[in-house]
């Protein structure tokens, strides 16, 4: 049964009429053309589909869109609406915190959520926060360097 759901996506109000059981990930990708969030596992075990709902990083592959009525969602596409990169993005670019880049949007959004909640996290906190994010290229050292750089740049907000 289809339902009309209103959400704010990257600051813009959107309404979608769809099966409320569909995962947010598929609605973002198929209905709204926002393909920055990736499918890695479909089970919330890899973090590639991470988006921000309010201030929380969530696995959009296991989040039914029907649960998000009225919520505000941020995806990687909304992080740097102008030409200026978000400090976390800039840090990942500067530290080459990616290889194939498929996990990167999820890594960046998880980092943004972390730094918004805790601007000066310890290494242990960073590692714990990113534990749910797989990088199959195993570029973890550069990812860690990127997050540290973002912390040094003081960077939760642009």
């Amino acid at each position: 049964m289809e339902k009309t759901i209103a959400l704010t996506v990257n600051g813009r109000l959107q309404t979608v009429t769809t099966d409320p059981a569909r995962p947010l990930l598929e609605v973002l990708r198929e209905d709204l053309g926002l393909t920055g969030a990736k499918l890695g596992c479909g089970e919330g075990q890899c973090g590639a589909c991470t988006v921000l709902v309010g201030s929380r990083a969530v696995a959009s592959c296991i989040t039914p869109v029907g649960d998000l009525e009225g919520r505000s969602i941020r995806t990687i596409e909304g992080l740097a609406p102008s030409q200026t990169l978000h400090p976390v993005q800039q840090a990942f670019l500067d530290e080459k915190g990616f290889q194939c880049g498929y996990c990167t949007p999820g890594m960046i959004l998880a980092t943004v959520a972390l730094l918004e909640a805790q601007p000066n996290p310890s290494d242990a906190q960073i590692r714990a926060r990113l534990e749910g994010h797989l990088c199959r290229c195993c570029g973890f050292p550069n990812i860690l360097r990127s997050v540290r750089r973002a912390v040094r740049a003081g960077g939760a907000t642009p």
Binding site: R29, L34, T35, G36, A37, K38, L39, T75, I76, E77, L79, A80, L85, Q89, F92, L93, K96, F98, G101, Y102, T104, P105, I108
Partner: peptide, 18 residues
């Protein structure tokens, strides 16, 4: 660095599945 690195960190790059 990766010539299209910026597209990877902004989500602009289209992977085959995208």
């Amino acid at each position: 660095g990766r010539p299209n690195g910026r597209d990877l960190i902004t989500g602009a790059h289209r992977f085959p599945s995208d």
